[in-house]
Amino acid sequence: MPSASENQRRSRVRIVDILLAILVTLGILAYILDVLALRWGLSTTYIAKSYPNYLRAAWISLYVTTIAYFIGMGIGFVLGWARSVQTLPLARVMAARRREAVAAADGGSPGAGLFLGTVFVYSIKYYVRRTADAYVAIIRGTPLFVQIVFVWSAVIVFYPRLDPLFQGLLSGVIALTANTGGYQSEIFRAGIQTVHSGQVEAARAIGLSRWGAMRYIVLPQAVRLVIPPLTNEYIGLLKASSLLAVVGSVPELTTFGRSEAFQTFHIFEAFALVVGIYLLITFPVSKVVEWIERRYRVPGLGIQAPRTARV
């Protein structure tokens, strides 16, 4: 017969569950570390001696990431703005205008009329929008490795006498900037569009101009929406900066760890240090962002940002 003791039983099960969970988690971790350390040997002296170098390398990673992030933010904001313009009406308007232009040109030589009508009728706005679309599509559709190497090749070809470190640094920053610019534009676009509907109408109804509406109504709200995904994007960019290892000349954390591993043969220690430092930075930040998102969440309002670890 279920009674008040039923509740007691349930809370006892819950406590056991939690204890068991902690035990199992720590146990598995301990076992893995034990097996790994035993098999590959864990030299704590090496770790104690070289961790400052790793921290220095991490600093370089952060340095590169931060520069690329903020320049990319400028690009992303502009692109996001450009892409938040409604396309469907735009495309329809363009198609309609083109039809008109073609009809009007039928009087003269139809071929030239058709061509001219098409090209000039699609306004600047349309081309700007399409270019922005293309840019973002390329960034998202190609691996970061390819983007980095492409820029790197260009830098080598056009500046062959530059020091390899600077070649690498320049390529890295350019590629990462372009990359994060593309992804951040998606974030800004989503933020602007989420707020946009109805708000601009309401703002203009009380007498604000389109610019005023943007400045006082849309943007302040968009800013709030956009902060969690932007923070995640920073973390994503930091992880992406690890791909500069393909260039090899920039001593960021991953490159450094890799070269250390192969030079000193302390492979597992290098791995542990690199992984440890990355986790130390990314884990707290992403948990904080998760907490913020959960706390300030308005159901139905928010941005589903695409996964930003885009290799």
Binding site: L243, F271, V275, L279, T282
Partner: peptide, 11 residues
């Protein structure tokens, strides 16, 4: 999710 995939791949 916290570690860059390249480093896990290498090691």
């Amino acid at each position: 999710r916290g570690v860059p995939p390249i480093i896990v791949v290498i090691f």
